Amino acid sequence: MSATLNPRVERLEGAGQAPAATGESPVWRAAEQALYWVDIPACKIVRLRVDSGQRSEWRLPEQVACIAFDRHGTVLAGCETGLFALTLSEAVSAASAASGEPLATSVRKLAAPEFGADGMRFNDGRCDRQGRFWSGTMVQNMAAANPAGALYRFDAQGVLSAPVVDALITQNGLGWSPDGTTMYLSDSHPSRRLIWAFDYDIESGEPRNRRVFADLHHHAGRPDGAAVDADGCYWICANDAGLLLRFTPEGKLDRQLPVPPTKPAMCAFGGRDLDTLFVTSIRPATGASEHDGHLFAVRPGVTGLAEPEFAGEL
């Protein structure tokens, strides 16, 4: 029997009054005590310094879906046409201040896969415990249910792999166990709703022995973005159900946590003690509530793990 938790879920007003269309990829950067996330169709990266409430944003020339950082603070981003290195400038020009435009960025393309269909982009992505960056692709028109998506690895030497996992419709849910030897991956398309686990070779970066970890046809919602806590449990955003679900390493659902938005998109641990779970959300085109598209924070009673940095030089 799974427990339903009801800790206080706080909407972070400092994140801004305007909702994101598709809020994704929250990343806690301890060096700045700040949370970063993206709004995919707005082509935007946002930062919130949680203690002060200071908010900054950067607009990119194309959609950005997932981000990680290297040790210098350079951003590695999965976008529409490939992987990019981004330098986020702190300086605001007089022209941009007057016009209200977001801060400028320096953008450099690193690599691109051979997309399997038209109208694709990168989606969910993050670094493994050794600092390799992983991200998958998807056809943006989800109604097409096109399994042209694939999962890729970008290593510290700057080499983008061939597809490691293919035939994905809506790649999501990447995460690794605390010791790095188990990798998690989901497909959040309504026709799939599956989370898989793999044995993960931490030396080679190769996942093997793919098996179903959780089938959300037996639970609520679709498996979107995820986070792993210090106990090795896997938290998944149950999109369309307004829930966060926690599965034990054995794949047993042991907690359900209601959140205000109907479509929670991805969660990440952060805060000074990594005891806060930040949750981004999506605002549907019709029937949106006042909460959809906003950023939320909750203390679920467990701590998370520091987000690994990319091991290479960008």
Results as ranks from 00 to 15, higher is better:
36 Y>K: 10
106 S>L: 09
289 S>T: 04
42 A>E: 08
200 Y>L: 06
7 P>A: 10
298 V>T: 10
184 Y>N: 00
67 I>K: 11
109 K>P: 03
54 Q>K: 10
74 T>G: 08
290 E>W: 02
87 T>I: 04
281 S>T: 05
132 R>G: 02
224 D>K: 04
133 F>Y: 15
89 S>P: 05
17 Q>S: 14
125 G>C: 12
158 G>P: 06
210 R>H: 13
170 T>M: 13
24 E>Q: 15
62 E>H: 07
236 I>W: 02
68 A>M: 07
88 L>P: 04
40 I>C: 08
113 P>V: 02
232 G>N: 11
260 P>Y: 05
22 T>G: 08
149 G>S: 00
88 L>M: 04
197 A>Y: 06
20 A>R: 00
154 F>C: 06
35 L>I: 15
274 L>P: 05
31 A>Q: 14
279 V>K: 01
209 N>G: 13
34 A>R: 09
23 G>C: 09
290 E>I: 03
30 A>M: 13
248 T>S: 08
56 S>D: 15
60 L>G: 03
309 E>M: 14
99 S>C: 08
289 S>I: 08
69 F>Q: 00
136 G>Y: 12
123 N>M: 12
313 E>R: 05
233 C>P: 08
108 R>N: 06
28 W>S: 09
199 D>H: 13
163 P>R: 12
249 P>A: 08
67 I>Y: 02
74 T>S: 07
180 G>W: 08
276 T>Q: 14
38 V>L: 15
191 S>M: 10
186 S>G: 09
143 A>S: 09
12 L>V: 09
102 P>N: 04
170 T>Y: 12
306 A>M: 14
280 T>G: 04
231 D>N: 13
306 A>H: 13
49 R>H: 14
133 F>I: 01
280 T>F: 05
156 A>M: 01
209 N>P: 11
108 R>I: 00
27 V>P: 14
200 Y>Q: 11
29 R>F: 14
23 G>L: 03
131 G>D: 02
100 G>W: 07
111 A>C: 10
96 S>A: 15
96 S>G: 11
182 T>L: 03
241 A>G: 07
172 N>F: 05
200 Y>N: 03
90 E>R: 00
164 V>M: 07
142 M>K: 10
293 G>V: 00
308 P>M: 12
161 S>G: 09
193 R>W: 05
190 P>M: 03
9 V>M: 13
83 L>F: 02
160 L>C: 00
79 C>H: 00
55 R>I: 09
235 W>Q: 07
291 H>F: 02
